[in-house]
Nucleic acid binder design. Structure first.
Length: 492
RNA sequence: GAGCCGCUAGCUCAGUAGGUAGAGCACCUGACUUUUAAUCAGGUGGUCGUUGGUUCGAUCCCAACGCGGCUCACCA
């Protein structure tokens, strides 16, 4: 049998009493006409409010209550903020006031009233009618400290959102950021598309996928790790500018920067190069930051970040030389570079490729130091199976990654559109996979076939939306910008 | 997956050098017709994360497990 606390029993008895009195505790026939911010917009600067001013009809959740026997102040919260109501027995009548007396913090109510200023000057509504709209059975967290327990905040995000206005603000900003990006892309004639989340061959990134199963088709499917190969098929199909803002799924560890499902924007532009995407990225992110924050200067976890252009550009090798402790000559020698990696404490296989080795060293010495916005270029071909080779140096590709606050925010490159080269690189990945590299790419014959029809030269980019939101909302954990982050099953 | 830290009332937290627990808020009863974490008086509410062990006795000591946070590993 379920144990019910005295608190919950009291609330349930109130609901029973309402039903018995012929009152529905959950009616749906009340329509608010204004929100809390409408009142402040109309009367926020008016000191002497006329007694016969307009009537406001509002609804919201009771967040605080101060009763005086025959009068009371309550604070209600709606989607725009909080508002104080003054309820006086003489104004709403004996019967209505008796009913109001049973209202609890957490209940949703509807009210009508006229604006006035209290003795202390707070703009409030003097209520003429008040009704219960939804009875709450569970007590809200304490009014002063609110809900701070991190686990409960994630598991019961609804309570977190009711209680903590800052949390609500983060998700309003998240929505705004995504809208700003979408408007920016559409204004540049990019077409928003949706490509499969369930894929027969997961591709477009190096990561372990989630596996699922389709009964009717009797077929194994993978949740996508990236939309890349499908978006590039659309370039073949003639959509020269496409973008998708959607979820990717990667079956990997969870951390303050990683959630198994996360949101990326990927976009592809025909006849563009990765160098053009560098300025495109600067323009896009500066637009978002200035529209959202009204500034290109902001703080992330105590670090002052400036989006003033131009942003720093370094090659992978330059970054290692700048932030590491090795000279250019040694870095050019595979064995000396390997010795350096060992000195750094990296535990790497002896036969590791030079390209992979460079990236290991880069990640160790440079990544965390890239606080200001920085583009890193000249990635080894070995770690970039879908990128176009540099015309000057076939060992590197025409690719950049964008870093800020010590973490990767975006990845872009000129696309490989030579089907023969692409097939060879897939085959190299298949060899790696056979050797046990679980993250290596699968062979995608249909993608090769698409390239054989001819994909226009293009550049493409992926931007991690969650990390961007973290940066622009000063949030330390990815869980702070995802409404329902993945957690283990709740135990009781 | 590993290490460290945490888990006490609905919420925020004390506490017991081992003798089955307290405060504030919330809730209930009463007073109060302009409060701002309203105030005043009284009251209800807990298998102290779970399971074992040690002990006359465990919320406290020990072990395992569960859940969470951080760091590392993997990655975006």
């Amino acid at each position: 049998m379920e144990e019910i606390s005295e608190l919950l029993l009291q609330r349930r008895r109130k609901v029973d009493a309402l039903w018995e009195a012929g009152i529905n505790p959950y009616p749906n026939d009340f329509t608010p006409e204004q929100t809390s911010d409408d009142l402040f917009a109309s009367y926020g600067t008016v000191q002497d409010i006329p007694a016969e001013s307009e009537t406001f009809t509002v609804a919201g959740r009771i967040m605080a209550r101060r009763s005086f026997g025959k009068a009371a102040f309550i604070q209600i919260q709606d989607r725009k903020g909080r508002l104080q109501l003054y309820i006086k027995k003489d104004s709403i009548g004996e019967e209505s006031f008796a009913s109001f007396d049973t209202f609890d913090i957490g209940d949703i109510i509807g009210a009508q009233g006229r604006p006035f200023r209290t003795k202390t000057g707070e703009l409030s509504l003097h209520v003429t009618e008040i009704r219960l709209i939804t009875k709450s059975l569970l007590p809200l967290p304490e009014k002063f400290h609110g809900l701070t327990d991190v686990e409960t905040r994630y598991r019961q995000r609804y309570v977190d959102l009711i209680t903590n206005p800052d949390v609500k603000e983060v998700f309003v900003k998240r929505s705004r950021i995504i809208n700003l990006i979408r408007e920016f892309m559409v204004a540049r004639d990019f077409l928003e598309v949706e490509t499969p989340m369930m894929q027969q061959i997961p591709g477009g990134a190096t990561a372990r996928p989630f596996v699922t199963y389709h009964n009717a088709l009797d077929m194994e499917l993978f949740l996508r790790i990236a939309p890349e190969l499908y978006l590039k098929r659309l370039l073949v199909g003639g959509f020269d500018r496409v973008f998708e803002i959607n979820r990717n799924f990667r079956n990997e560890g969870i951390s303050v920067r990683h959630n198994p499902e996360f949101t990326m924007m990927e976009f592809y532009q025909a006849y563009a190069t990765y160098e053009e995407l560098i300025s495109f990225t600067e323009e896009l992110l500066c637009h978002v930051a200035s529209e959202l924050l009204g500034s290109l200067e902001f703080n992330y976890q105590g670090a002052a970040i400036s989006f003033q252009r131009p942003w720093k550009r370094l090659t992978v090798r330059e970054a290692i030389l700048e932030y590491g402790d090795i000279d250019a000559k040694s870095l050019a020698d595979r064995d000396l570079a390997y010795a350096y990696a060992v000195r750094l404490g990296l535990d790497l296989p002896e036969d590791i490729g030079f390209g992979k080795l460079l990236m290991e060293i880069f990640d160790e010495v440079a990544e965390a130091k890239l606080i200001q916005p920085t583009f890193i270029t000249a990635y080894p071909t070995e770690v970039s199976p879908l990128s176009r080779r540099s015309e000057e140096d076939p060992e590197v590709v025409d690719r950049f990654e964008f870093f800020c606050a010590g973490r990767e925010m975006a990845n872009a490159f000129s696309e490989l559109n030579d089907p023969v080269d692409q097939k060879e690189r897939f085959l190299a990945q298949v060899v790696a996979k056979d050797k046990g590299d679980e993250e290596a790419h699968y062979m995608d014959e249909d993608y090769i076939r698409a390239l054989e029809y001819g994909m226009p030269p293009a550049a493409g980019e992926g931007i991690g939306i969650d990390r961007l939101v973290m940066l622009l909302t000063d949030s330390p954990s990815i869980r702070d910008v995802i409404l329902f982050p993945q957690l283990r099953r709740e135990t009781k």
